[in-house]
């Protein structure tokens, strides 16, 4: 019943091999309409995704993605690559900035004697400064990743 539902949503024809152990035996290869119109399914549609109706073109792109045609595979590989690249770049930024601190304290001990408003500089650099940095990088990545995904969806829909 449930995996039947997923097939109708994603347009998958084969049942997932890991599924189906505890699911009620249903005639598996039942042909499913791509448009989720049949009355008994309306209730369940609300639970998983609130999709607006899709155009035929977007559906074809979706099916190509799903069926791993060379074009679909290329598309998703590009998305993975661009997401990974932005993740690694931001991680490197943070690692370099934070990783430089212990080395800086080690190489220039005089650095540790500096004070700002009476508080030793290392305490400010270690106790306060990293948190806004981490939050800022987090925000930045969130925007990047969401933009990549939006671009991807736009491309698929058109």
């Amino acid at each position: 019943m449930t995996d039947d539902f997923y097939r109708s949503v994603g347009g998958i024809r084969e049942p997932d091999p890991t599924l189906g152990k505890s699911v009620q035996p249903e005639p598996a290869p039942e042909p499913v309409l791509p448009e989720p119109e049949p009355p008994p399914r309306v209730r369940r549609q609300r639970v998983v995704l609130a999709e607006p109706s899709r155009s035929a073109g977007s559906l074809r792109a979706r099916v190509e993605l799903e069926q791993q045609t060379s074009w679909g595979e290329l598309l998703i590989k590009d998305l993975i690559k661009v997401q990974l690249r932005s993740g690694v770049a931001l991680a490197l930024l943070v690692v370099v900035v934070l990783g430089a601190l212990p080395a800086a304290f080690f190489v220039w001990p005089a650095f540790t004697d500096l004070r700002f408003v009476g508080i030793p500089l290392p305490w400010l650099l270690l106790g306060v400064a990293p948190f806004p940095l981490l939050f800022g990088v987090g925000l930045w990545y969130n925007r990047l990743a969401e933009r990549h995904e939006r671009d991807f969806v736009d491309m698929i829909e058109n």
Binding site: R62, L65, I76, L79, V153
Partner: peptide, 17 residues
């Protein structure tokens, strides 16, 4: 990796339980 609006996500907990 497919963005959420494409709806490829499937819930393994629902599938099993």
């Amino acid at each position: 990796h497919a963005p959420d609006p494409l709806g490829f996500m499937r819930d393994r907990a629902v599938a099993r339980f």
